[in-house]
Design a protein around this nucleic acid. Structure first.
Lengths: 209, 209
DNA sequence: GCCATTTTTGACCAGTTGGTTCAAAGCGTA
DNA sequence: TACGCTTTGAACCAACTGGTCAAAAATGGC
């Protein structure tokens, strides 16, 4: 008897769960939790609804599985902030990595944004635990850099917020960004212009004179 | 016969519509369009559902009425950017006003964010029209200031995006901000710290050396 | 090829949703 | 008081929702 893992998932189970999560990411990120339906997710995954419910207990189960899997990847860029590196270069690299994530994983960003927008009812413990600890840790690092005069003195947590806000904006508010810029900008041009602007803003805004 | 306005709305009609919109703002901003129900809005407005539907044609009608009414107030701070003023002071004031709106009208901000997040299906024409025109206009003003050397050269549209993103973050992602900062910050302290940080970031980031 | 297990599906269900019906109840005005 | 118009709510409806069930199909070890 194996109490911990009575039945190791088969290859087909993993594949199907993966296909479902991929489809659910599409649907949830486009319509929100309330606007998404199991039928739609099942159709997008190319299977029947009962079949989908054979692999997941229900709508909430799929949703939470998606979000939990997300958080790790989402925090990776902040984790990579290196205490040994040059402060301004580290922040610049952080901004760039975060912006790349908005470009490469916009659906994930929107899913996350929708959850927070609704008050984060399903992941509040994660935010108050794992996320807060990481931010507290990196805030201390930033404060150290500021005390050493290698970075302009400023509230480190609000600095982190502003990086999140500015970079995720290009995924979460993509519709607005496109509408305002007009159709004459390609995806690459938009990304490059945003990267240039944000790197300069933070570099100049945080450089000690 | 009055073709334009065959029946001027009575005082009671205006009051009831107002009460409904107020209640709908509560419900829509908290649960999103899909998650909101007419019953809930009717209950929040203190009336029966058929009564509510006597004043509005349907769920969409309420939602669009809310959003359209919003846009004007939302753009006011950007409109107030004064060509005669001092560039850095104008931007600083713009950031402060926008942040005050996040503090004073968080439900409106979240409603708007939800709409954009879903791809702005109902207000895309407004974004491509009114909003784009205003941004184009103010971008020219910023470019003029930059050409005069009164502001660091940078992409003016992405500058506007970054002001939107950083300030609205405190309304739209309020749940996350609170979770990360912890309970020991009062609303005023949070707002003051955010204002200080953002004003400094943009002032230093855009100042010519 | 046989059998137990896993995977898939069509049919179905109870609850909720946006929206309607219609008759009763206000309400201003003469 | 009597008349028309506005306002209200109980009951109702069709469509859709998340979720179930039992039986069929596919799979895999022997």
């Amino acid at each position: 008897m194996d109490a911990i893992s009575p039945k190791p998932p088969t290859r087909i189970q993993q594949e199907k769960r993966e296909r479902i999560l991929e489809a659910a990411l599409d649907v949830f990120s486009a319509h929100g939790f309330g606007g998404a339906t199991l039928d739609r997710i099942a159709q997008a995954a190319g299977m029947s609804k009962p079949n989908l419910l054979y692999y997941f207990r229900g709508k909430d189960d799929i949703y939470t599985a998606l979000i939990e899997r997300l958080l790790d990847r989402w925090l990776e860029p902040l984790r990579a902030l290196d205490p040994q590196g040059d402060p301004l270069q580290e922040i610049r690299a952080y901004v760039r990595r975060k912006l790349e994530m908005s470009r490469d994983y916009p659906r994930e960003s929107r899913l996350f944004a929708g959850e927070i927008l609704a008050g984060a009812p399903r992941i509040m413990p994660l935010l108050e635990g794992e996320l807060k600890e990481l931010v507290d840790d990196k805030a201390m690092l930033l404060e150290r850099w500021m005390a050493q005069g290698r970075l302009r003195a400023a509230d480190p947590r609000h600095l982190i917020f502003s990086v999140w806000a500015t970079t995720q904006h290009y995924a979460d508010f993509d519709a607005q960004v496109r509408a305002v810029l007009g159709p004459e900008w390609s995806d690459e041009e938009r990304f490059e212009a945003a990267a240039r602007f944000l790197e300069a803003l933070f570099a100049e805004g945080l450089r000690t004179r």
